[in-house]
Amino acid sequence: MADAPVPAISVRNIHKSFGQHEVLRGISLDAHDGDVISILGASGSGKSTFLRCINLLETPDEGEITVAGEAIAMKRNRAGSLVPADRKQVDRIRSELAMVFQSFNLWSHMTVLQNLIEGPVHVLKRPKAECVAEAEALLEKVGLAERRNYYPAHLSGGQQQRAAIARALAMQPKALLFDEPTSALDPELVGEVLKVMRSLAEEGRTMLVVTHEMAFARNVSDRVMFLHEGVVEADGAPEDIFTNSESERFRQFIGGFQA
């Protein structure tokens, strides 16, 4: 599938600064259907910022984003900064790129099932009965069928993250964006979430995963991207990059995890 003509996500030359601090200095990426790309980097290297630029939770200062061949229209405002030209398009693109957050971000006033059908019913405007049936199947898949009527506050972190992944899948997205999905979890809960993510990778989902889980990056992803000081410092298939990367920094970085 890597030779699919149109990439699911294509990002060109993203720049982003916060005030004087230039966080991203020209990052590009092509994710084809079925690709699982791990994004690695030290804390503060701009991984989250990069991921959030893709669905415009952060507005890039420079660069182009194309989702399944559709370019997100941007224009310059009077101050000269880049802004989305069409809010409706941004909303639609976001609904096609589901995001899974580090701290789950489930809607606290809704049950797990309600969390899952919220987007499909109210954003995608699909029939509710159909959405409920699909949501139940998804909850079965992530092992939360019994917890469908629980509120997020009544679930463990691992359960909340699995519910959040199911909520993302319920949107039937073209790609999934994960921002450190296991970083907020107690060590004994990390495994259950990684297992779900691994099964998604195996069924051919397109995934961009910001992570500190080296085993996941190494064993599950098709490609690894290492960000350092706002640029892609190393990039390649895990079997290459983990064994003989040209980047001294990347070797140091993974060295830190093996120690």
């Binding site: 669905n55 939770l57 809010r87 941004v90 909303d91 639609r92 693109i93 976001r94 609904s95 589901a98 995001m99 957050f101 701290s103 971000n105 489930l106 809607w107 606290s108 919220e118 987007g119 109210h122 954003v123 995608l124 909520r167 949107m171």
Partner: peptide
């Protein structure tokens, strides 16, 4: 972060406020 999850799902404006 709950508002952000709404935005990430494609909600904005009145829909985000109402739901």
């Amino acid at each position: 972060r709950e508002i952000e999850a709404g935005r990430a799902a494609g909600m904005s404006g009145l829909l985000l406020f109402r739901r």
